Simulated scan of single mutants.
Amino acid sequence: MKTALDLVAAAKARIQEVPVDAAEAAIAQADVLIDVREPDEYRQGHVPGAVNMPRGLLEFQMSGQPAMAPRDLAIVLYCKTSGRAALAACALHDMGYLNVRSIAGGFDAWAAAGKPVAAPSTPTFG
């Protein structure tokens, strides 16, 4: 029986990961940046410009949005550490998307590298 880690390792063998130091350039060239984490994770902080499509809903959301229909869209994905994004990239490849990449190390690596993070603002009371 395969474990989740086995599935992630197999997925990573099939996909293209972008190192964190090249991620900003990949994002700049992408048509869409997708955060596949859960909404509560996304709300705590995310890569600027990312749209949230949780891993469990990704295929349905991609299929339900006409703007996401072109199979040649340049897509960059990320999650917390890169496992869910690797599985998501495989799913998108299986759906026929041709240009899907994942950020190696995910959001944790992005933030640790000092890259910009869109965080919720705390209301101020004067």
Rank of each mutant, 00 (worst) to 15 (best):
R84F: 12
N52G: 09
Q61V: 01
A111W: 08
L87Q: 15
I15K: 04
L58R: 03
E17L: 11
P54A: 00
V32D: 04
L5R: 10
P39N: 02
A119K: 12
S63A: 15
T124S: 13
G56P: 10
A85L: 09
E41P: 13
Q65W: 00
I34K: 06
D40T: 05
G64M: 06
G64Q: 09
A109M: 13
P116Y: 04
A23G: 10
D94P: 14
Y97N: 13
S102M: 10
L57V: 02
S121E: 15
A85H: 10
G64Y: 00
C79K: 11
Y42Q: 05
L33C: 07
E59K: 00
A26D: 01
A10R: 08
N99V: 02
L92R: 14
R55C: 00
E24F: 03
F125L: 02
A74W: 01
G96M: 04
A13S: 14
F60N: 13
V100I: 06
E41H: 08
T3R: 14
A28T: 02
A10S: 05
Q16I: 10
R101C: 10
G45K: 06
M68R: 15
A69P: 03
V32Q: 09
E17Q: 11
R101G: 07
A9S: 11
V20W: 06
F60P: 08
L87R: 10
A23K: 11
L77Y: 13
P123R: 02
Q44L: 07
K115S: 11
K80A: 15
A28Y: 00
L87I: 12
V8W: 11
G96E: 07
Q61T: 01
P39L: 00
I75M: 11
D35C: 05
A67T: 08
Q16M: 12
S121C: 06
A11F: 04
N52L: 07
L7W: 11
G114R: 03
A113C: 02
P39R: 00
A13R: 12
L58H: 01
V100W: 01
A86Y: 07
G83Q: 07
L92K: 14
D72R: 04
A22R: 08
L5M: 14
P48S: 15
A26P: 00
Q65T: 12
A69F: 03
D72V: 02
A86D: 07
L73P: 11
T122A: 08
I27K: 04
V76Y: 12
D21N: 09
V100R: 06
D21C: 09
Q65K: 14
T124E: 08
Q29I: 00
H93K: 15
P120T: 01
E41V: 04
A26M: 07
E59F: 03
V76D: 11
A111E: 15
R14I: 03
I34M: 00
E41Q: 11
M53S: 08
Q16D: 10
A119V: 05
D6A: 02
V18P: 05
L87S: 03
K12F: 04
K2R: 08
A23I: 05
T3H: 09
R14V: 00
L98W: 05
I34L: 03
W110T: 04
V32T: 05
E38K: 00
D108N: 15
D94K: 07
I75V: 14
G126A: 12
G56S: 04
G114F: 01
Q65F: 03
D35T: 06
